[in-house]
Computed example of a mutant assay.
Amino acid sequence: MDILNNERKEFIKASIESALNLAECSPFSPYLSTSNGRYVLECENQEQANMEVDRILEQAHGTEHYCFTWDGYATEDGIKRDAAFLEIGFQGQEMAKVLCQFYELDDGRVSALEPAFVTREKPNRLGSPLMGVLTEDERGLIKTSPVFVFLAIAGADGTVDKKETDAFIQNLQSPPATDNGLIRYVFADCQKSGLQYINAILGSRQLADPDQTFALIADAADKLGENGSELKSTLFDLAKRIASSSGGFLGFGSKIGKEEKAILDIMQMHFKC
């Protein structure tokens, strides 16, 4: 593992031990531990727990590290086994690591079956370029901006069908190639939470007034300097691809309709692209 000092090693070791101790009460509630405190996440499902972790960390200024832990199962050699999962991230690192710790319960006592191992990497929640710069509402607008662009353009005719949504979610798996950390962060986040964001926006009033929403997105992006300007250009390029969709992005239609053109004009006015 890419651990730089003993303090980080001790944090990882303590996090694994804590997970094993709580596993004696299996299943245990997901929880978040940081350099500032510890939080039990009373959530109905993993999706809600993820959102709560984001909310806490975005407001926890000065946090040096975090560990988001949850109970679950993993399959090894065709055998389903109890496992604790730990997402661990450190300030200054772009990626966090998700560890798996297999364990077994014997007469109420927990034993680790083997050393914890890294299952995958994911964008570090402490690596968010939005933290400490924007308000909570502004962070939400920036994080969901690619999804809002899709819904505003694809739904300009009054409907967004499942085929269009599936194509958009699939397209998110090939994010823009860029060195811009903000753009990488926003699109990586949408890869993880795209459907969740779609449902949230469809259930809100944002689409009722795209002019106002695009103005708010532009204002928030402007607070992020050059990175924000590049994000606006990327979003406008995304909008044009969705609107034209000539056998490419969504694969429907061959020209930009007047409804889509109206949305593009609104974006161009606010984004100054």
Rank of each mutant, 00 (worst) to 15 (best):
I3W: 02
E10W: 07
F11M: 11
I12G: 00
K13Y: 11
E17K: 12
L22A: 09
L22G: 03
S26V: 09
P27S: 06
P30F: 05
L32W: 06
N36T: 14
L41K: 02
N45P: 06
N45Q: 05
R55I: 04
E58R: 08
A60R: 11
T63E: 15
H65K: 10
T69R: 03
T69S: 14
T69K: 03
D71V: 02
D71K: 04
Y73K: 12
E76I: 01
D77R: 00
I79W: 00
I79R: 01
K80A: 01
A83S: 04
L86W: 00
F90K: 07
M95R: 12
C100P: 00
F102A: 01
D106I: 15
G108P: 05
A112M: 07
F117Q: 00
K122T: 15
S128F: 02
P129Q: 04
M131I: 14
E138L: 05
F150R: 05
L151Y: 09
L151A: 03
A152F: 01
A154D: 04
K162V: 15
E164S: 09
T165I: 15
A167M: 03
F168Q: 00
N171S: 14
L172Y: 02
L172R: 07
P175W: 04
P175C: 04
P176G: 08
T178E: 03
T178P: 06
D179K: 12
Y185E: 06
Y185D: 12
F187S: 02
D189L: 10
I201R: 03
S204N: 08
R205K: 13
L207K: 05
D209G: 10
P210T: 06
A215D: 10
L216T: 03
D219M: 11
K223W: 04
N227P: 06
S229C: 12
S229K: 14
L231P: 07
L238P: 07
A239V: 13
A239S: 10
A239L: 10
R241P: 01
I242A: 01
S246L: 07
G248T: 15
F249T: 11
S254E: 14
I256V: 15
I256G: 01
G257V: 01
L264K: 06
M267K: 05
M267V: 06
Q268R: 15
M269F: 15
F271Y: 13
